[in-house]
Design a protein around this nucleic acid. Structure first.
Length: 580
RNA sequence: GGGCCCAUAGCUCAGCUGGAUAGAGCAGCCGACUUCUAAUCGGCAGGUCGAGGGUUCGAAUCCUUCUGGGCCCGCCA
């Protein structure tokens, strides 16, 4: 149930009625007619802009349309009053029974309340994390992981068929670097004194990999030339790194459906096939790029390369797909990878990248648009940097020195739930400050605890009520006399619950899971407020002497906890039953 | 030189793809624990929505120019 959608449908019906009566012309575009909660609750429960939107195309004054519309809407039993305000807003107040129905609907649906068929089962591929398999995940990856995972859950909740995917960049030269680094650790495991020159990964996390390699192959690679050991160590090291990464993801509660190996595309003709598909459209050619404007690389010289005409699809320059030695650039297998995703039948692709990949967005979109003739949309979400601090002091990370704050470190310090929630309390395209001491603070300064506390309070009420002999199962609470929820403060909280399905739709449509976190904070605030009003107004307490009144109020509280639990579920956070 | 993102209260940020008097939290001030855990709540104060121009019934939101910050810019992925 989505109350706002219902009332919007009612409004559109009323408009149709006015058209039939000849009060409005036919063929009006109603796409911009909205029904939403008014900014100021004093204006009513819902507001529609219909009269203003239709005024110009209909050639009538907004207030005239509003009056006619108000008369029709007021005839519906759900509508208590319809008032014209401001330039032509129609403010609606709903019958109290509507809010009571919302509570009943939440209890009936459980955490599925707010699920929708918006996606109509369309198949969405969400690619995220996809960190190079050269080391453990660090904080930057964590944000992408949390964001992608919440987005995937959100889309699933909204009726999409979602595949969570990680592409392993195991085909590039960084894997050679990894293999050489592991080789040095392997020699070290054999008691050799080794130096770590520039251009290899110095991190300690490779020490056990070197030891493991020694255990597997003994001294077979010692003092042997690179062409003997490079290829096998590449595979060995990649597997080891993916083992680390999977373990890291597990710590965070992220489970991928598909790990896709980039290397698996090589030698199969699939890269060539994807490029041929573009060539058939006349988008591949030999050419020489203009030198980049501004500061010129010192070793710049013009070279003829194989280029993709990405400018046809909105890119700024055409992009090379082959290096001058004839080998592929990273772009070519990536085109093939996206070609593969399209061929697997996805209706929509979403990639979550770090902000440093911003320059890559246009060419990737161009490639997908070219491959599918614009049929399959690709949305690329960039997550901005995380600035990790402790007591306001920055925890510096340097990948070069091999000292970086890992995902495992962060989880160790604050836990997965806190990490996930906090990282979702910011828009993906805004930088994020993450203070490991502050996020553990147990105060309303800290949104995680604030929301958790609201849930725990409800659980506490249920425990107390249960101890007092009240049946507090959801089945039983559904049968409560919800008509007793007649206080405006209670109806306001129920109204907040009614916004949940609408909010989920907006968040899913815009691919913005952070809206869930902000809504939950808002909902928690509503519960805390009502709770505290109980201090001065005992009739607003959830536990009453009259068991029937009590059950109705507990039903409301329980409905709030259900929506909080459902929302936290989308974010991948466990609701707390008590605070310690 | 070009591209992408960002700029909203002293601070950290929301703001429903164009709606009404722009909202939270923190910090500041005042108030509420014989209660369903005060890890909470109520109130006060705080704004030329970076600047200018444009689009229209209506702009923080869309277009444009500028200013300031972040990321990126052919053989790394």
């Amino acid at each position: 149930m989505n109350l706002f959608a219902d009332i919007r449908a009612l409004t559109l019906d009323a408009i149709d009625g006015l058209v039939r009566d000849g009060a409005l012309p036919e063929g009006l575009d109603v796409a911009n007619v909205t029904v939403e909660p008014p900014r100021d609750a004093a204006h009513g429960d819902m507001a529609t802009n219909a009269a203003m939107v239709l005024a110009k195309p209909a050639g009538r004054k907004p207030r005239d349309i509003a009056e006619a519309l108000a008369a029709r809407l007021a005839a519906d039993p759900r509508i208590r009053t319809a008032e014209i305000a401001g330039p032509g807003f129609l403010n609606l107040r709903l019958a109290p029974a509507i809010w009571q129905d919302v509570v009943g609907a939440v209890l009936a649906a459980g955490t599925a309340f707010g699920r929708s068929g918006l996606g109509a089962g369309s198949r969405v591929n969400v690619e995220y994390v996809s960190a190079n398999p050269t080391g453990p995940l660090h904080v930057g990856h964590t944000r992408g992981a949390v964001f992608g995972d919440a987005l995937a859950a959100l889309l699933e909740f909204s009726g999409h068929d979602v595949t969570r995917e990680y592409v392993i960049n195991d085909g590039g030269s960084q894997i050679d670097t990894l293999a050489r680094s592991v080789y040095l650790r392997y020699l070290e495991a054999h008691g050799r004194d080794v130096a770590f020159p520039d251009g290899v990964y110095p991190g300690d996390y490779l020490v056990p990999v070197g030891v493991a390699l020694k255990e597997q192959v003994g001294a077979d690679y010692v003092d042997r030339p690179e062409d003997v050991w490079l290829a096998p160590i590449r595979d060995f090291a990649t597997d080891a790194m993916m083992g680390l990464i999977r373990a890291d993801l597990l710590r965070l509660g992220v489970e991928m459906d598909v790990f896709f190996s980039e290397k698996s595309l090589y030698g199969t003709g699939r890269i060539e096939a994807a490029i041929e598909a573009l060539r058939a459209k006349g988008l591949i050619y030999r050419g020489t790029l203009e030198p980049p404007k501004g500061k010129l690389p010192e070793d710049w010289e013009a070279r003829e390369q194989t280029l993709f005409r990405s400018t046809e699809y909105g890119d700024d320059v055409d992009r090379p797909i082959q290096k001058s030695d004839g080998s592929w650039t990273y772009f070519a297998p990536d085109i093939a990878y996206h070609h593969d995703k399209v061929e697997r039948g996805f209706d929509q692709l979403i990639n979550v990248f770090g902000a440093d990949h911003g320059g890559y967005v246009k060419r990737m979109k161009a490639a997908v648009a070219a491959l599918t003739d614009g049929r399959v949309p690709l949305d690329i979400k960039l997550t901005q940097l995380v600035r990790l601090t402790r007591d306001g002091e920055e925890l510096k990370m340097s990948k070069r020195a091999g000292t970086f704050v890992t995902l495992a470190d962060v989880i160790e310090m604050v836990g997965a739930d806190v990490t996930r929630f906090v990282m979702l309390t910011r828009k993906n395209d805004a930088p994020l400050d993450f203070d490991v001491s502050k996020v553990l603070e147990q105060s309303k300064d800290n949104p995680v605890y604030y929301v958790q506390y609201a849930h725990a309070r409800v659980m506490s009420v249920l425990r107390k009520a249960g101890a007092a002999g009240i049946d507090v199962t959801d089945e039983s609470l559904r049968m409560a006399e919800l008509a007793r929820l007649d206080h405006p403060a209670e109806q306001a909280l129920a109204a907040k619950l009614a916004e949940w399905p609408r909010l989920v739709e907006i968040a899913a449509r815009t691919h913005e899971p952070h809206r869930i976190a902000f809504y939950l904070y808002d909902l928690a605030s509503g519960l805390h407020a009502l709770w505290n009003r109980g201090h001065d107004e005992p009739n607003l307490r959830f536990l009453q002497d009259d068991p029937d009144a009590s059950r109705a109020k507990i039903a409301l509280a329980r409905a709030v906890s259900i929506v909080i639990a459902g929302g936290l579920g989308i974010l991948g956070v466990e609701p707390a039953n008590e605070m310690r």
